[in-house]
């Protein structure tokens, strides 16, 4: 089997496994989403009760809630592999490291998408935003783009920090600064989607997000095998 097929086959197996574990652990998705809801609630209380203020704060609040809950789910994704040193078992097989990365990345991206499915409608309600089905779909689409760019470095950093003390501080410390371009692009495009886009700027932000995704999905895949080598 050539390397690409091996990576793809491994990635699919790992993603299947992760999603299955995720499904068995539905309580986790539930609690992560609940955390996102709490963030949204706090932000809407902080910016409210004036509905104009709320509407202006809606895009930023949604992005912050999504990022905060994403961090929780990402840091969890490698805890599973550490519980019984399963990662070591995978290294012995030996598994294609890139396959492991893209498998985890895929599962994490899907998980982040699920989060949006819960948090976006709640934002629309709490922040008194007018939104029809098309708007909701657009918001989800942009989040999907950002989720890819968040899951790629997120998976890589989670793999590192899960082995360190005080991982809960370190993961956001490393990941949030990195996500600034995605965050700005997301806030801007959410704003345009919710309040109209007279200058047609949405296209350029989409391009920026896609470029961000491509760079990180490729770069993190290349760098991941280095950090997997526990044989230090």
């Amino acid at each position: 089997m050539n390397i690409v097929r091996r990576v793809a086959a491994t990635a699919i197996l790992i993603a299947q496994k992760d999603l299955r574990l995720e499904w068995r652990n539905r309580a986790r998705l539930f609690s992560v989403a609940l955390f996102g809801l709490v963030v949204l609630l706090l932000l809407s209380l902080a910016f409210g009760p004036n509905s104009d203020d709320l509407q202006r704060a809606a895009p930023g609040s949604l992005v912050v809630a999504l990022l905060f809950s994403s961090i929780l789910s990402l840091s969890e994704s490698f805890r599973l592999e550490r519980e019984d040193s399963a990662l070591e078992g995978l290294a012995l097989v030996p598994i294609e490291p890139m396959g492991l990365f893209y498998g985890k990345f895929l599962a994490n991206t899907l998980f982040l998408l699920l989060l949006a499915g819960i948090l976006i409608p709640v934002t629309v309600v709490l922040f008194v935003v007018e939104a029809d089905a098309r708007v909701l779909l657009q918001l989800t689409g942009f989040w999907a783009l950002a989720a890819v760019g968040l899951a790629a470095p997120g998976t890589l950093y989670a793999a590192m920090t899960s082995r360190l003390r005080s991982q809960d501080v370190l993961l956001p410390l490393l990941l949030f600064p990195l996500e600034v371009p995605a965050l700005i692009a997301l806030v801007k495009s959410f704003g345009f989607i919710l309040t109209g886009d007279p200058m047609e700027q949405l296209v350029s932000w989409t391009k920026l997000l896609i470029a961000f995704d491509l760079i990180y999905v490729a770069l993190c895949g290349v760098l991941f095998p280095f950090i997997l080598d526990e044989g230090s």
Partner: peptide, 27 residues
């Protein structure tokens, strides 16, 4: 292969799923 004192299992995966995962990964 190494049979360690750690068992390398995923808590929520069934025995059969473990076997199939290993079979798949063994390439």
């Amino acid at each position: 292969t190494l049979v360690s004192h750690r068992t390398y299992l995923y808590e929520q995966l069934t025995a059969l799923e473990h076997v199939r995962l290993w079979m798949g990964l063994a390439m």
